[in-house]
Computed example of a mutant assay.
Amino acid sequence: MIELKTPAEVERMHVAGRFVAEVLTEVGRLADVGVNLMDLEHHVRGMIKRRGAESCYWDYAPSFGKGPFRNVICLSVNDAVLHGLPHDYTLRDGDVLTADIAVSVDGWAADSARTVIVGTPAEADLRIVRATEEALEAAIDAARPGNRLGDISAAIGAVARAYGYPVNTEFGGHGIGRTMHEDLHVPNKGQPGRGMKLRPGLTLALEPWFARTTDRIVYDPDGWTIRSADGSRTAHSEHTVAITDGEPLVLTRRESEEPRAGLSTRDAAQ
C-alpha cells in the first residue's frame, strides 16, 4: 500500500532526515587513511544512542541478505557499493568509501548515502562520484506532482548514459516513511511518462549507484556486501525526498552539501 504523508508527517520525517545528514557529515569528516571501518561503525552507534534514534538496519533480514544485519551503517569500499558489512578493514590512501544509513526517530524513517574518497583522489573516482551526485539531483528535480515514476528513473538513466556508465536495475530507490522500505521500487533507468503519477505526500528514497564498467553484481561470502562483478570501482548517492505541491523537499540534505548542476552530454564524456 502506498501511503501519502501529511505535511506534519513529512516534517517528522525531516527530523529523522536532519539527523541522518548529521551522521553522514560526521562519517565523511572521520573517514581518513588509517581509520578502521569498525571504528566508524561504533562511532555511529554512539551517535544514534545519544540521539535516542533507532537503527533501521539492526536485525534487518530481507530475502536477499544472509541472516539479520547486525550493524547500524553500511560501509562499502572501492568495488563494493551496496550493503557493505562493516568489518576489520583499515582505510588506505585513494580508497572510495560509500556510507549508507537509515534511522527512525519517533517512528519515522529517513535514508541517505554518500560516497567519499579517502586521501588522494583519482580523477576516475571523482568522475563516478560526480555522476551519481548529478543523477541524484536530476532525479530530485523530476520528483514533482504530475510527473510519473518513470520520469525519475529516466532522469537517472540519462545521466548514467551521458557519462557512459551501465545501470543495474536490481537495486534502486524505494518508498519510505514509517519503515525504511515501503511500496514502490524506483529503478535507476526507465521510460519517461510511464508508471504511477507522482502526488504530494509521496516520500521516496532515491539512490543512483553506478559501477564504471558493468551492470552485473556479485555478493561477498558475508551474504550482504554487493560488489561490481568485474571489480570496477563504484559510487552511490541517496536522499530521502518528499513530493510537495511545489519544489521537491530533500529531507536528508547535508548543510555543507551543494547540489551539483548537471553537465552536458559532451562535458560528461570528457
Rank of each mutant, 00 (worst) to 15 (best):
residue 262 G to A: 10
residue 87 H to T: 11
residue 258 E to I: 14
residue 220 D to W: 14
residue 4 L to F: 15
residue 124 A to R: 15
residue 253 R to K: 08
residue 74 C to S: 14
residue 80 A to V: 00
residue 6 T to E: 12
residue 114 R to I: 15
residue 67 G to N: 03
residue 267 D to F: 09
residue 55 S to L: 13
residue 244 T to W: 09
residue 176 I to V: 10
residue 54 E to T: 08
residue 15 V to H: 03
residue 110 A to C: 15
residue 246 G to F: 09
residue 62 P to C: 08
residue 103 V to C: 05
residue 158 A to T: 09
residue 13 M to Y: 01
residue 149 L to C: 00
residue 168 N to P: 07
residue 143 A to H: 00
residue 220 D to S: 09
residue 25 T to M: 15
residue 23 V to P: 10
residue 152 I to K: 01
residue 143 A to E: 00
residue 157 G to E: 01
residue 174 H to S: 15
residue 194 R to E: 13
residue 122 A to K: 14
residue 163 Y to Q: 09
residue 205 A to Y: 06
residue 150 G to N: 03
residue 95 D to R: 07
residue 45 R to M: 11
residue 233 R to A: 11
residue 96 V to N: 04
residue 58 W to I: 11
residue 59 D to G: 05
residue 50 R to A: 12
residue 227 R to L: 10
residue 260 R to P: 14
residue 198 L to K: 05
residue 211 A to W: 02
residue 170 E to P: 03
residue 205 A to W: 07
residue 213 T to F: 00
residue 103 V to H: 04
residue 246 G to S: 09
residue 17 G to W: 00
residue 252 T to A: 14
residue 97 L to T: 02
residue 88 D to H: 13
residue 269 A to D: 06
residue 112 S to K: 08
residue 212 R to N: 06
residue 85 L to E: 06
residue 265 T to Y: 11
residue 44 V to R: 02
residue 204 L to K: 01
residue 17 G to Q: 00
residue 175 G to W: 09
residue 52 G to S: 12
residue 176 I to Q: 08
residue 70 R to T: 10
residue 94 G to W: 08
residue 229 A to S: 13
residue 214 T to P: 01
residue 26 E to F: 13
residue 51 R to D: 05
residue 104 S to C: 15
residue 18 R to H: 12
residue 174 H to P: 11
residue 102 A to E: 04
residue 254 R to Q: 10
residue 77 V to S: 00
residue 148 R to K: 11
residue 82 L to R: 04
residue 223 G to V: 05
residue 176 I to S: 02
residue 143 A to P: 00
residue 222 D to P: 07
residue 212 R to E: 10
residue 177 G to P: 07
residue 251 L to Q: 12
residue 89 Y to L: 09
residue 106 D to M: 11
residue 18 R to W: 02
residue 114 R to F: 07
residue 13 M to G: 02
residue 88 D to R: 13
residue 152 I to R: 01
residue 115 T to I: 08
residue 237 S to R: 12
residue 52 G to Q: 06
residue 182 E to S: 14
residue 171 F to I: 13
residue 98 T to R: 07
residue 56 C to K: 13
residue 223 G to Y: 06
residue 188 N to P: 01
residue 3 E to F: 14
residue 131 A to C: 12
residue 210 F to H: 03
residue 168 N to M: 14
residue 218 V to P: 01
residue 115 T to G: 06
residue 172 G to Q: 05
residue 92 R to Y: 09
residue 154 A to H: 12
residue 201 G to T: 11
residue 241 V to C: 02
residue 259 P to D: 08
residue 200 P to T: 04
residue 90 T to F: 05
residue 161 R to P: 05
residue 56 C to P: 02
residue 31 A to W: 09
residue 199 R to S: 14
residue 178 R to K: 11
residue 244 T to M: 07
